[in-house]
């Protein structure tokens, strides 16, 4: 009896979940703000500043979506999530979207029932070694001690890579990035391995960054992107096309500085469609005509966000690399806006 009541309650809860998630865009509009899951802190991607304002590359995506819906990049509330709580927070409806440097994988997409709405950063696992070791390639790392974060995909990638190249290594398990820095600087390990963006950010904080090199090999694919729940395609489309709009804006030269000028109308029909002077694309998406203008004004186009938070002029100093536009030899290739 008790069990059936419990199962019944679960079913009702499940049905209610289905009903609620069927119209996330309406829910978001009704409550007046977007609820966005971010990390509890990752350099360049999301961190609170001294005034408690969140900023970073992932945060920029959240703000752009909020601006597209409400015309106000501050109409967003951030929920810090850890690697362990992020997926339940999204599945349970606590947050509307997750922008938390999450790798797009088969199981997360299919088995956990999420919908990745694009890729905002192409990352990959790399190695950092002290320059004095004289190592120039990861293939020379046979027998090295490696600092590695436990319980992550990087651990598995590392094992795969060394086995595939018939090399041996001695792992030094560590929990957090800051612990890794300490261990690495204390020479507890020869090599530190994690995502290349993380390596660059870590190296930037060393007293003598030039004494350490990041090896050229990238041993895994880590496409990071925002994600939403399965089953609400209208909401997924909003998040996907806000991200695409930022990428297209960079490709077409629309920046936060000139967007107001260009929104008055240009000779380029794709820009006109994007900025709402031709057609009614905002309406099709369930938003107003100036959605893309607002999203671009929030923090700039993709390139501006990149430069501001993780680009070469920041302490992290990442080159565009794979994250350049396809016209510049990168992988960013947004579908045409028509």
């Amino acid at each position: 009896m008790k069990k059936s009541v419990f199962l019944g309650a679960l079913t009702v809860a499940g049905l209610a979940a289905g009903a609620a998630s069927a119209a996330t865009l309406d829910d978001v509009k009704a409550k007046g703000f977007l609820q966005c899951g971010v990390t509890t802190g990752l350099t360049g991607f999301a961190a609170p500043d001294a005034n408690g304002e969140w900023e970073g590359f992932d945060v920029g995506v959240c703000r752009a979506v909020a601006a597209a819906i409400f015309g106000d990049p501050t109409a967003v509330k951030f929920t810090p999530t850890t690697g362990k709580t992020r997926f339940t927070a999204l599945a349970s409806g606590e947050i509307d979207m997750l922008a938390r440097n999450t790798t797009w994988t088969f199981t997360r997409d299919v088995d956990l029932k999420f919908e990745f709405t694009g890729i905002n950063y192409y990352d990959g696992q790399g190695f950092m070694v002290p320059k004095e070791l004289g190592v120039t390639s990861a293939k020379e790392l046979d027998g090295a001690t490696v600092c590695i974060q436990t319980g992550t995909t990087t651990e598995l990638n590392l094992a795969d890579y060394f086995r595939a190249n018939n090399m041996s290594y001695e792992p030094v398990p560590i929990e957090t990035n800051s612990e890794a820095q300490q261990q690495y600087l204390a020479n507890a390990c020869d090599v530190y391995t994690t995502d290349r963006s993380g390596l660059a950010a870590t190296r930037a904080t060393f007293e003598n960054p030039a004494d350490h090199v990041i090896l050229p090999e990238t041993i895994s694919k880590e496409p990071l992107g925002p994600l939403v729940r399965h089953g609400d395609h209208e909401w997924g489309d909003v998040v996907r096309w806000v991200l695409n709009a930022l990428i297209i804006a960079e490709e077409k030269g629309v920046t936060s500085a000139n967007v107001d000028e260009l929104a008055k109308g240009t000779d380029n029909p794709e820009i006109n469609r994007l900025l709402g002077t031709e057609g009614s694309y905002g309406e099709i998406l369930g938003l107003d005509a100036a959605w893309a203008v607002n999203a671009i004004k929030a923090g700039g186009n993709y390139g501006e966000l990149f430069e501001k938070h993780i680009g070469e002029n920041t302490p992290i100093g990442l080159a565009r690399g794979l994250n350049a536009q396809w016209t510049d030899g990168g992988l960013l290739y947004a579908p045409p806006f028509r």
Partner: peptide, 24 residues
């Protein structure tokens, strides 16, 4: 660990700022 920013959680968040990364 469950994402509430108590002093320890906040120390991680502060360290995630580019200015203060590496401070322990």
């Amino acid at each position: 660990i469950i994402g509430l920013l108590d002093p320890i959680g906040f120390s991680n968040a502060i360290r995630a700022n580019a200015e203060w990364q590496g401070i322990v």
